[in-house]
Design a protein around this nucleic acid. Structure first.
Lengths: 220, 220, 220, 220
DNA sequence: AATGAATGAGCCTTCATTCAT
DNA sequence: GATGAATGAAGGCTCATTCAT
């Protein structure tokens, strides 16, 4: 039962405000440079509230990562707009589009994607969970798509390499944003050109997979 | 004149030992989590020596990044094994091979690559210099190769997108190593399969660029 | 509401203990030679408590100077024992007596006077405030007394010089205590001969002002 | 023999340059806040030169104080312009004038006077020497003058008090310069009004002593 | 459920000094 | 006679955490 039984529009609870402000600040500065004082200040909460609600800074971090992943996957499911008759090309397009949207889409905060980037560089225990619940399922879906595109010509190993090539292209836009901005300017991110990037990656990958498969077939 | 005129292998000076140990520790833990005490300890130097030689922790970091970039570029130049008659395919192969080697090659420390990964996620002022001196030249070389492979069919914009796709594939193996290890196990890195990865990325990219170019040509 | 509603003599809070011990130690050693560690130790507080309550060492110093001035002025007001019919001679006597008492009186700590002496030699930003709130008001009161004693014969300039002569005599006993002790021994300070010194300075100054005024009058 | 036997205008020796720069910096910042690095830098000398020439920072300080006192006394002797027929009034005038000149005279650096001010607030062992060699002789000369001015009416104790009153007036202008500047502006020091201040203090003190002596005589 | 005061560990930096040359 | 490299001690400050309320 709520502490404000007569008030449906109760103030957002301290715990939730802490999760939000922690997400932003961890994404901005990284785990070590972020201070619990800044996090609690931005959440208009007491410095002791973090230890009260989450135990310590590390468990707050893990909670932020976990709850953020759930939110972002719900918003951009990888099978958006597909049906049971969709071609592999359409499936790849949907996969790439949802993936790119997760960090280029203008609506909503982008701190979760940035947090994931950090986590992949300097993993904590939270990464294991993230891989199990989010990344591996996505990866396996992509394997199926690649296998389908290849017309069954690819070994498991080859499927894996192609999947990595696709994920690499996508993640690069996010993980290396500071570099891309310095090379080509910021307009790519300001305009959030989700569609153009999606189309390119999809086409690039489909052409590569198709013609590698074709040359495999000819070898036989 | 050197203090060791007869000895080319003079004892490694404190300054150099500090640069090495700092590289390792910054790569392991990041700028904030790394402590100058640990760095000086690992270099068997006094904690005050960092201040003496570099001024402060930040300038030490910048120096590490800069001198590391120089070392690694000297070791794996992007035109290794090429001559004036090399085809664009061979040029791309050399480019990818040297790039991959910089962080997968078993000889020599890999801390510089890891440091770059961090820097790209959470840039400091040192990144500007790194982009100017190292990354932009490499990027422009890659543009020329892509343009050549496309047979002149690509707009500047398309060249850029393809270059990003190639870099993305390569960097992914390094930046996301913790994720790949969790997905597919560690053998990829233990065996340092430079060649296999290089071949795949080269083939994948060449097929993609060639057939996109061909379809562009047909459109006309 | 206080945490000790029934107890007016609540336990001295950390903040107050820090102000006291800081006053002593700053007075003993000066700002730079005093260490926050010694200050917090003497106050039986943690070293971080200084940062918590005052921000940093400098702001602690400013607070010590300010709160000390208030205490000492409240204890020895410059109009002690006067009424509206008091003569200028009596006013000067009271002024000198209270002034001398502030650093020679045996009751209470004398660190504030010593701190002021330091501040006047090597001013920090805190001196501006001290002049504005404490010294200037005292100075103006002394001007009125001197003007009164002179029977209106003095120019503003002359009033100023005489006021400086009086303050100079008084402060000397305090600022140059180490020299006086070395010249004449310590008994002056051990006995805290407030009265004798007060009588001398008052008489010396009144005689000087009166007869300078008289000779001015004769000139006309 | 000089290291530059053929060169009469040999560069000022390191030792002397160190004494000068140390004088300035100690006067500016005090013993603790002054750093040997700043001192040796300003003297264009190596950081190790201080330990080489003076042993350590403390002995450098003592040497600075001592050599400075000698210079300033030689420049402004307390019997300047007097002869064996000079009156006590003239002697006092000469005494005050030379005293004031030592820190208000525009020629030459004023760091020694500032150093003395510091030393009197926070004495080191160097003060004992200073009192013995400089201050006590001056003090005894002043006693003789006061005794003379009083026409033999004063007890030793009274002589002492009057001497302290005179010294207090003089030193005040120097020791409390920061306060006087804040009260009355800087013009007093900019114009270096040695003469006006000298005349006032002399007249003030003579009138006081004369009329106190007269009233003593009448008491009898 | 929540808080402000207080803590102790640890960090970066500065400093006077020393040592080998 | 003089120096640049290197050192160890210590200083101010920050931080995550805890405790009494």
């Amino acid at each position: 039962m709520s502490a404000h039984p007569l008030n449906d529009t109760a103030p957002i609870q301290t715990r939730d405000r802490l999760l939000d402000s922690a997400g932003e600040i961890f994404a901005e500065r990284g785990f070590h440079a972020a201070t619990v004082r800044d996090i609690s200040d931005r959440a208009h909460a007491n410095i002791a509230s973090i230890n009260y609600h989450f135990g310590d800074k590390e468990r707050l971090y893990a909670e932020v990562l976990k709850s953020g992943a759930k939110k972002v996957l719900d918003r951009f499911p990888p099978d958006q707009g597909l049906n049971e008759y969709s071609t592999f090309e359409e499936q790849l397009q949907a996969f790439v589009s949802s993936f790119i949207s997760r960090f280029l889409d203008p609506s909503g905060p982008d701190w979760h994607a940035r947090l994931c980037a950090r986590e992949m560089i300097e993993p904590t225990e939270a990464l294991d969970e993230l891989v199990r619940d989010v990344i591996r399922p996505l990866s396996e879906r992509l394997h199926l798509i690649v296998r389908g595109l290849s017309g069954g010509q690819f070994s498991d190993e080859r499927v894996r390499l192609c999947a990595l090539s696709i994920i690499g292209q996508m993640l690069f836009y996010h993980h290396n944003r500071p570099v891309i901005e310095r090379l080509y300017g910021k307009q790519l991110y300001v305009n959030r050109e989700v569609e153009r990037v999606t189309r390119h990656i999809t086409e690039f990958s489909i052409q590569a997979i198709r013609h590698i498969a074709k040359s495999k077939a000819q070898e036989k």
